[in-house]
Each structure stands twice: as C-alpha cells, then as structure tokens.
Amino acid sequence: MLGYIFRRLLGIIPVLLGISLLVFTLLRTIPGDPAIIILGERSTPEQRAALRTKLKLDRPLYLNFEGGNVLESQYVTYITNFATGDFGDSIKTRQAISKELKERFPATIELALSALLIAVVVGVTTGVVSATKRGSLLDAGSMIVALLGVSIPIFWLGLMMQYLFSVKLKWLDPSLRLDTSLHGTFKPITGLYLLDGLLLGRFDITANAFKHLIMPSLALATVPLASIARMTRSAMLEVLYQDYIRTARAKGLSARITILRHGLRNALIPVITVIGLQLGFLLGGAVLTETVFSWPGIGRWLLDGILARDYPVVQSGVMFVSLVFVLINTLVDISYRFFDPRIQFK
C-alpha cells in the first residue's frame, strides 16, 4: 500500500516536468515582448535591453550552449526556482508571485469548495432519490434538470443570475468577495472569508461574504452537480438489483439503512471518480465564473497573465494549479482502496 502510494506520487514528476516544458514553450511562442509591455512603446532599445538582463530574459531558452554553465538558461532557472518555492515576481505588478498566490488561491479555494459542497450534497441526494424512485415523475423531472445542467454554459448562467438576483431583485451582490467598505477592516486568518468572519467573531463579514459567494458558487456548481447526480443514479441502479440488497431487505433491515449503508456505499466508487474529475473542472472552470463575477481568484489572474505576457505569473500559476490538480487525481485514485477494500494494488 505504502509502496503503491509512493510510486503514484513519483509518477507525478514526469507529468509536471512535461507541463512545465509545455507552459514555458507556449509562453515563449506568444507574440509580444514583455520588455515593451512594461516599459511602453516609447522606451529606448537600451532601456529594454537593461530590463531583459534584469529579468534574465536575455539568457538562452532551454540549455546554454553558448559557453559557460550549460544550465544557465531560462527554463532551468524556472524549474529549479519553482522546485525551491521561489516563484519570482510578476512582471506587471512587480509583486512577489507567492504573495499574489497567497491572496488569490484562498479566493479560488473558497469558491471551488463551496461549489463542490453544493454539488456533492445536492447531487448525491438527487441521484439516490431518483434511483430509489425509478420511473417516477420525480425521477424523470430531476434527470431532465440534470441534463439541462450539464448543457448550460456557466458564463451565461452567471449573467442571468446576476440579472435576476442583483439587477432585478437586488438580493445579492453581483461581484467581488466583499463590499468595498469592508476591505481592510480585518486581517484574514485563513483567507476564506466565510471562515475568517466566524473565527474573528465578525459575523457581518461572514454574512457579507456569503451574499457575495452564493451566486458564483451556485453557477460553478451546476455542471458538477448535474454530472454527480447522473452518475449517482446510474451507479445506485446497478447496485440496487444486486443479491446482497435483497438479502439485506429479506433479513428485515429498513429501507433507509439498506439504501444508505448497503446501496450507496457500494455505489460510491464511480461517484468519487466523477467528484475527483469535477474538482479539476472547478479549479480550471473557475476562469469563466471568476470573469463573470469579478472574483479575485487564480483563474482570472492567469487569464490576465496570459493576455499580458506576464511570464512568471503564468509559469508559476499554471504549474501550481496543475500540481494541485494532479495531486487531487492521485489522491482520488488512492482513496478507492479506502472505499472498496476489494481493490488490490499491484
């Protein structure tokens, strides 16, 4: 078991190396000179050259074959720095990337986790109820809604929610994480404002953060919710016709215990796979949701970074997101054992 986990974690390294090569190469192919972007069109060639030296952009790309240390190249600097936790500075804002990451990652995590919570709770419940009431109006209705849910473009859903709940009904706030008046009135502990408000005893912050969070997390939750509901339903249907379910009922267990303890537990494996896959979607799909709701998270930050050729931001940001994504998928794989002891590891 430990050996298996170790081998799986080791297997992450080549994938991450590949991603780093891909990001690095892609960014260098995006047209536009970062020196001109920072200094403006009217800067002199000398100024640009000086800045390139300062940012080490004058070094060879992959390996240095021009004499001196072979490893003195942009790519090698990038991966060794990343591995040692030195993410560099943003070219555009000149802030340390680790600092920006620290501000923005919790925003995305808060959004992704609340969306995941909604998706799992509502999705699994809907799936179980649909499966046990197979063929009923409730089943048909919720599966139609689920199909609509997978088909809905989330950026459009976000716009429509903004119109309905902020413009028309004025219940919720259309953008950002907090009202601007609350910014700077407290020192974040976890960076998750819902939690910070509770920890600091500032319930006004929790309430305000909730009003800002609810719409983007609902919009982001739609697609995962629908997939989880569909997957739970079909996995439950498969399980509910097994002999051991009949045995459980025959020996006098209540319907509730049969369905939850004997049914759902065995239906969980495919559901967990879907949940794991959806977590990746939540991290990546946040780009669109964060754009629509001006949510100051990682997705929007990376998008701006790509458009502004902010090499360090995109390099470190994408590596970071991919690392999280690959780690989650590996953990999901490993967790199968926990949910299904029949699975043996080679």
Binding site: P14, V15, G18, I19, L22, V23, L26, L27, T29, I30, P31, G32, G280, L283, G284, G285, V287, L288, G299, L302, L303, I306, L307, V314, V318, V321, S322, F325, V326, N329
Partner: peptide
Amino acid sequence: TWLMDILLAFPSILLAIALTAISNNRES
C-alpha cells in the same frame, strides 16, 4: 501516454486560451 497525461493534467480552458492567444498574432 505521457503527452496525453500532460494535456489532460493541464486545465483545458487555460490551454485553449493560451493557444488562441498565441495563434492570434497577425504575424504568425
């Protein structure tokens, strides 16, 4: 398999954004 794993581990919408940003340079 390695190449496919890399592409799958990369947040797909970001990859699409980067590729589109690259290819939409008028000189390219």
